[in-house]
Design a protein around this nucleic acid. Sequence first.
DNA 1: GCACAGGTAGATT
DNA 2: AATCTACCTGTG
Length: 294
Amino acid sequence: MGTRWQSLPLQLPPHVLAELLDGGQAFRWNQKALGCWIGIWSSHVLELKQHPDSLQIHWRALTPQTTAEDVHDYFAFDLDFPQLTDELPWRSDPVLKTAIGRYPGLRILRQPLAETLIGFICSSAKRIPQIKQCLENLARAFGTPLTPEYHALPTWEQLASASENDLRACALGYRAKYIHQSAHFLADHPGFLEQISNLSDAQAHQHLLRLPGVGSKIADCVLLFGAHRLAAFPVDTWIAKSMRALYGLPHAKLADIAHFGHIHFGPAAGLAQQFIFSSAKTPAKPPPPNSQKP
DNA sequence: GCACAGGTAGATT
DNA sequence: AATCTACCTGTG
């Protein structure tokens, strides 16, 4: 294809790049070989390559219309994540400090809202590989082809033309009903997703709750990853479990933890959540052997 | 065979 | 208003 490799203004340790692309924010990145990724969003298919000896990342598009601006927008280079991270209360919070230390450079992607909504409606009680499989099935069944190999996710309009059984055939299980009902809800409410940009965080959250299959957690994921509302603080079982333990809140309910997160972490609480979520999945490092015992 | 997964909705207390 | 359950499907 025509496009050449270009440099991405982003340097990350390989495990942080993997977490960014494949840690639960996005569900359409696959590692083809060591340090080589292919991802799809909107009508873009992007290849990423990280040289084994350096942290430098290069990209090239497999779709001819993809521009550097599209890529920079997706990775949200207009935002200063080092600055946002430094403004988190890590100086007074050893849990957060440890989490940031484990995933230096982690950021929040700016994904298309409609696609993010599909992904997270499919996410309930599923692991990441299964979610990815569902979206792959949906793309192949209902999405527009972008290259011989890759399809876009379907639009909500395309999903509305599918029957619930068609959707079940994509291994969605009971989530097929949610996708089906939400597709028809969106067809009946033109501009519903576009309205979100005019709403406050709290209003946008309430707005999304009207969609079938969207509860508090998924609404926050959609806001954080699909609307770039960095204050949104999704509380899932992982975050809940680890925060109860790490912050001494043994009896806190999900809503309590969400409230604590907003108060404690502030306007970029969602970024803090991403560090803690990623870190929580990493088993604690065993204490180093005490080589010089007195 | 059976519990459990980045939850939600509807029923039941 | 606060718990309890059913819901698909793949994985251990």
